[in-house]
Amino acid sequence: MKGGTAIMTTTRFAAALAAAVFLLAAAPGAARAAGPLDDPGFAKVITCAACHGANGNSGSDMMPIISGLDPAYFKRQIENYAAGKRPSPEMEPYAKEVQFLGADQIAAYFAAQKRVPTPIRVSAEAAARGKTIAAQCVVCHGPDGKGEAARLIPGLAGQPPGYLAQQMALFKGDTRDPGDPLLAAKKALMKIIPDGQFADLAAYYSSLR
């Protein structure tokens, strides 16, 4: 919140009181408990739920979990999708819808949601193999796969394995954010990892909590 707006004037207080009285009068005998609609962000993200799950906690293998995502990272992805820099026939239109509804508010909403790890289970063997390949990923994504928000590096822990493996292939082929200097090192690294190891690497990061 910006400085100064927290101070409520007498006029504003009276208006707020009047609004509160109106709300109580509108629902006699049924004082509504606090609900999701109290957060204006909730109504803005209902379209997202069809793919990304309740509050951004996707339960499917191919759709990323977007709850608890750093707002700056979230907004950067929306901008890149909308501009066609991160090409996605699904997300390019929806990113524009997010911008229409208010990217700041939607980013803040998802950032505030508690992240629930994917329910998709991976084999322990695949995860163990993936761990041996992950040594170089740790440099940026951290030893626990939580990422580093300040450097716009997303957390990978608990993301669905299908999504992670697909993104690796997109990075390797330079079809995600082509030419983005922030991602040059990442793509160089992905190029030396054989395609056959993506599933194991994805299994490892997906299994992290």
Partner: peptide, 14 residues
Amino acid sequence: AQRAEGWRQSIWAD
């Protein structure tokens, strides 16, 4: 097609 499967799972739950 893989994303179609993902959509199916998510929207059924929704």
